[in-house]
Design a protein around this nucleic acid. Structure first.
Lengths: 118, 118
DNA sequence: ATAACTTACTTTGTATTACAAGGTATATTA
DNA sequence: TAATATACCTTGTAATACAAAGTAAGTTAT
């Protein structure tokens, strides 16, 4: 994958995952698909990326997990993740920060050439 | 500084700097001010961040530098940076990537709760 | 004058994080 | 029954924003 793409995503995946878990409980594998689907295939999280993020979020009490067997035809349960109240607060803070930075970046990227010397 | 803010910026500062140098030649210190000013104070690059980025961009032939003494009252020249043709191509590629990822992220962040189970 | 501040450039070390690449094991489909 | 998809996990690596430190010249206030 392109190095730049990797870098753009730094930190943002955590935000994206929190946002999705704010809507509904999901298990790891389904989160990967959800991210891909909801982003219109623009975002593709690797499993080796996702799981460490989930453990991080759990360690910081933003989310919590539980094993559950919903599908009775399956012998193995899945590990579901659920956002906590703490996580909801964190999500809002992160959204504010993201919007602020993102606005600043777009101000620069969308500006037309404006060379006063010419 | 907030850790999340740091992470959001990963990789994006390179893009922002290239974009500004695409408009006009600038020296390091003025770039810091330019970024702050043009982003409406949302972005504040530290000098310890900027200079390594400039050296990286120069190593990859995206920009080139020259010492110039424009202000005759100053004894010391400033090190100006100029975007190369290679850098212009790189900038366009990065802009495309950024827009793609950014679109995907916003699709997720702007989506309202849509829990089909309820 | 001189102390304090700003301008301007540089370097070293640290923390963080996305991913590649490897692994395990069950479930489904050809 | 072989291949593929599902589902989880771990280790090591590369990249990068920043803190913190330094050097040195220019400017401003007392």
């Amino acid at each position: 994958m392109k190095q730049f793409t990797k870098q753009i995503k730094k930190g943002l995946l955590e935000l994206v995952i929190l946002k999705l878990l704010n809507d509904e409980d999901l298990y790891g594998y389904s989160l990967i698909q959800k991210v891909k689907e909801k982003s219109n295939n623009s975002l593709d999280i690797k499993d080796g990326t996702l799981y460490p993020i989930l453990y991080r979020l759990e360690d910081s009490n933003m989310i919590e997990s539980y094993w559950e067997q919903i599908d009775t035809t399956r012998s193995k349960p899945r590990k579901y993740y659920k956002i906590t109240d703490n996580g909801k607060t964190g999500l809002n803070d992160m959204l504010d920060e993201y919007l602020e930075i993102s606005k600043g970046i777009n101000l620069i990227l969308n500006s037309e050439v404006n060379n006063n010397d010419l």
